[in-house]
Amino acid sequence: MSSTNNPAPKWLFPLVLSFIIIILAAVIPRFLPPYTIISLNDIFMYIVLTVSWAVFSGPTRYISLASAAFFGIGIYVSAVLGNVLPFLAAIALGGLASFLLALLVGLSSLRLRGMYFTIFTFGLSELIRHSVLWWEVNITRTVGRLVVSVDNITVYYAMLTIVLLTLAMAYFIKNSKYGLALLAIGESEEATDHIGVNVNALKILAFAMSAVFMGAAGATMATRWTYIDPSIAFNPLFSFMPVLMAIFGGVHRIYGQIIGATALTLLADMLLTKFPYYYNLLYGIILVAVILFLPQGLAGLRERMSKWRKHVLVK
């Protein structure tokens, strides 16, 4: 039987849509005011952090709060080596440093489960922050560093590339047998081990892979801030935001994670400028409301809508 009679395959629409978005994203900066480009860069940054975080923590349910450490390492690589290395090399090194750090974190937290893993990763990021601070105060006698500045458009294209690479990685892992195995780890680690999956190796590797682009994004974004110190680079907010954004948008769908990161970045931006005094209050209320009424995140909205529509039609 020929396949010409079949309707367009279901992946065609998203493929075309993402193609259009990519083209648009590549052309758009020359028509935009600098402020918009800066906020686009922010959105890209949070998309990378959120999607990367969800590569490991989404399926396995190991909630990591170490994103700030991986992001911050990238920032520091860029700050220390930015003036001796070309921009691209600094980004690549930032990703590599982050990968290696994640390997170490993964190896040292192998036996920890659930809440213990979460607290350990959080403690570790704080430990790194304070160690770097101590090092700077006592050894190099500098607090804070200047980062070689790179113009917004270059940062924009670098971030766009990192976003696309992150999405590609997330997509391929999710749709591979390893993605399925990560989901299985979230269900029963013991059973996963017993059907032939090297659980420890897979966990560590997935964790390290999820850190690569966080580091690369850190190295890129550092050039935009021009000045950094440990409390900027390892700001715990970079650990918490990806978790919130992923939950806000929908942990189990990549598009949900993208929507979550975009929506919360824009929301924070808008609230901060429109309601500087009630910013945190409003932000909190909206977060709580979404998590309360949409446990599946914004991505769950679509399923809800179609259910509701069916319900109404039946009546």
Binding site: K177, A181, L183, A184, E187, S188, A191, G196, V197
Partner: peptide, 24 residues
């Protein structure tokens, strides 16, 4: 296992596919 240890939120066929992919 004595107390069944399935991948509960995954489909029946995903449970088996995974074992095919990673088994002997």
């Amino acid at each position: 296992f004595q107390l069944v240890k399935l991948f509960g939120s995954m489909t029946v066929s995903q449970n088996i596919l995974l074992a095919c992919f990673f088994g002997k």
